[in-house]
Design a protein around this nucleic acid. Structure first.
Lengths: 133, 133
DNA sequence: ACAAGTACTTACCCAATGGTATGTTCAACT
DNA sequence: AGTTGAACATACCATTGGGTAAGTACTTGT
């Protein structure tokens, strides 16, 4: 988990919700704006840092690294670093991470059905939805 | 959507990501800590305000109302108010909201498989997963 | 010497979400 | 008159998420 003040009321309230609900268990791990799209992009397979940065429009380096660290801490993503210079680092979904695919797929399916004017675009992406069937 | 400063850089960065990804389209609507658990609780059917408040441990009134307003604005939740006193208000999933069930179910399934010591508890809740099959 | 490539880190500040306390409305009840 | 019930609203503050700018490390190339 991220570095959060553990004694804050906000965290306590969230802990109460957390204990009760499988949905919240997942949201604690993949929630927020950027994690789902990062995970989605990693469904296509291993990516180097700069590949990932390019495939997630609008994300800053700081936030990308931050999110990747959190995903790694939760064992959803595996970071592999070669001992070379320039640095050579790749990120890939762990087995736990890959198991998230049905969630992301369900999301994409919902987007196709309810995306309004973007549905056609989403439908194309659904046809080529990355990762194993 | 919530009342957000529309010209901020944060929003602009998120807009860039938004245009590209069905997953992000969904996260824009059900993202954050509290929305998924609220939606999950509404899967069981129509609920009055105080019922909802009780079924989401740790949420403050302010946040609950705020989140419900956002969910209503995105047409995922329907709020029905009777013209009586004391006030009598119910919330239920719209058809769009009900269509989110597979996402929440996929989450619960993932939690069962990866919830560690809580998996047994989650499995019980999965067996009784609310809403239509 | 300087620039480039790669993958980060840190400091400071702003944006967004969430918490606490107080208040509103109106009818019914004590 | 004061209290209760139900569903909120508002003001102000706290916490968390995100952005910008500058920097780090080390090798290689110009």
């Amino acid at each position: 988990m991220a570095n959060i003040k553990e004694t804050s009321v906000i965290q306590e309230n969230k802990s109460n919700a957390f204990a009760a609900c499988p949905v919240t268990f997942v949201v604690e791990r993949i929630g927020g704006y950027w994690k789902p799209i990062i995970l989605f992009n990693l469904l296509t397979g291993t990516k180097r840092y700069h590949e990932l940065r390019k495939s997630v429009p609008g994300i800053t380096e700081k936030v990308l690294i931050q999110q990747l660290k959190q995903l790694e801490a939760d064992h959803l993503v595996t970071r592999i670093s070669k001992p070379v210079v320039p640095p050579y680092v790749t990120y890939e979904l762990s087995s736990q991470g890959k198991a998230l695919r049905p969630i992301l797929l369900a999301m994409a399916e919902w987007a196709v059905g309810h995306g309004g004017e973007q549905s056609a675009q989403f439908e194309k992406q659904l046809a080529d939805f990355p990762g194993e069937e």
